[in-house]
């Protein structure tokens, strides 16, 4: 076994508690990020589903004449980004309302006049479901004199995006706090390891070992700690997904590449933390 690997492993034997704490700290900080990933992924999926359903609903004045309507339908179909268009009559609207809201069925049947307006439901082409494109069509349609109101569900999308931003902010803060703790624990572990091996290090320097060679066992230890921390975070994230899915609501697991990324980030984090610490503490030997 090469010298660096042997020494790195012996550091785990020498202070197992500290090694364990380092792994757990990295694991938890990345778990927070992993949970955010899980949330973000599922919100993203939700947004996609909502976006597929993006429609512009154009409520029509009761006085709209069939010829007006026919002309408007032709014009709207020709607008850029519009996929198709459906005319919902007052009767259709009432039927739908009665079907979807069973408990109000009696109320609807007792009405003398149908209070629901007729409408046009516009669906957008997949590439044109952006807020701007939708808004352009909505504003154009609003210009017809017989249009009472136009709704296009942007408020909803904005709210979802806002929730996602909020979750990202919270995860970054909590993750950073855990990462700081992890960095401090790793630095302490390196400091103790340097102290325990100070005689060895001074002899290594005396006989002409390069700085890189002296540092290598510590860096390797950091990489191993980070790798284990990342793996722990991936495991915890997967566990959280299982528990949430089984008990609260069905969600989707984040893609495999994201899990790999969690482990890679942990490894890089362990490497960088120990590099910073080893540079500082080796100066003192």
């Amino acid at each position: 076994m090469p010298y660096s690997l042997r020494e790195a492993l012996s550091a785990f034997r020498r202070s197992p508690l500290l090694a364990f704490l380092s792994v757990v700290a990295i694991g938890f900080s990345l778990f927070v990020i992993g949970l955010f990933g899980l949330t973000a992924w599922n919100i993203g999926r939700a947004i996609e589903t909502v976006e597929e359903k993006v429609e512009i609903v154009v409520y029509l004045d009761d006085a709209t004449t069939p010829s007006q309507l026919e002309l408007a339908q032709q014009e709207v179909r020709a607008l850029p980004g519009v996929l198709d268009l459906r005319h919902v009559t007052k009767t259709d609207a009432l039927a739908t309302a009665m079907a979807e809201m069973q408990e109000f069925r009696d109320v609807f049947s007792d009405l003398d006049n149908n209070p629901l307006p007729a409408s046009l439901e516009i669906r957008m082409k997949p590439g044109s479901r952006t807020p701007d494109a939708v808004k352009r069509v909505a504003e154009r349609v609003r210009a017809y004199p017989f249009v009472e109101d136009v709704r296009y569900g942007r408020e909803w999308l904005d709210k979802i995006y806002q929730i996602r931003r909020l979750a990202a902010g919270a995860a970054t803060m909590i993750g950073a706090a855990f990462a700081l703790v992890a960095a401090i624990i790793i630095a302490t572990a390196v400091r103790i390891a340097v102290f325990a091996r100070r005689e060895e290090i001074s002899i290594m320097r005396l006989v002409g070992a390069t700085d890189g060679f002296v540092q290598r066992p510590f860096l390797l230890e950091g990489v191993m700690t980070g790798l284990m921390g990342g793996a722990l975070a991936a495991l915890l994230t997967w566990g959280a997904y299982r528990i949430l899915s089984a008990n609260i609501f069905q969600i989707e697991m984040i893609p495999g590449e994201w899990m790999v990324l969690v482990v890679v980030v942990g490894t890089v984090f362990g490497f960088v933390s120990s590099m910073v610490a080893v540079r500082r503490h080796l100066e003192a030997v």
Partner: peptide
Amino acid sequence: IPLLRRKLGVVFQDFR
């Protein structure tokens, strides 16, 4: 510096 040190053998009072 490590390259220089490899050309030097060093012995101390306290053996090290």
